[in-house]
């Protein structure tokens, strides 16, 4: 999602680097939480993308279940 992870600023951050940081989190840390638009933009984009992907999966599963019905009846 976020291609260029910013350099970790602390040991804790390094430890958790791969554990799925919230988009906007890294930017926010760097900017000491002053930049709301940055976070909001990242959230908006991320939420939209997540919803599309997850929704598409749900629809594909619906079609697959019908296909299963066709195949075995």
């Amino acid at each position: 999602m976020t291609k260029n992870w910013p350099t970790a600023t602390s040991k804790i951050e390094t430890l958790h680097d791969r554990s799925g940081l919230a988009p906007g989190r890294a930017e926010a840390k760097r900017m000491k939480q002053t930049s709301r638009p940055v976070i909001e933009e990242a959230r908006k984009k991320g939420a939209r993308r997540t919803a599309m992907v997850v929704g598409a999966i749900a629809f594909a599963i619906f079609l697959l279940s019908l296909l299963q019905g066709l195949r075995y009846s």
Partner: peptide, 15 residues
């Protein structure tokens, strides 16, 4: 899912 993956406050790592 979209909320948990995208809306966590800075520092609220998944774990």
């Amino acid at each position: 899912i979209a909320t948990i993956l995208n809306m966590r406050a800075p520092g609220m790592d998944l774990l």
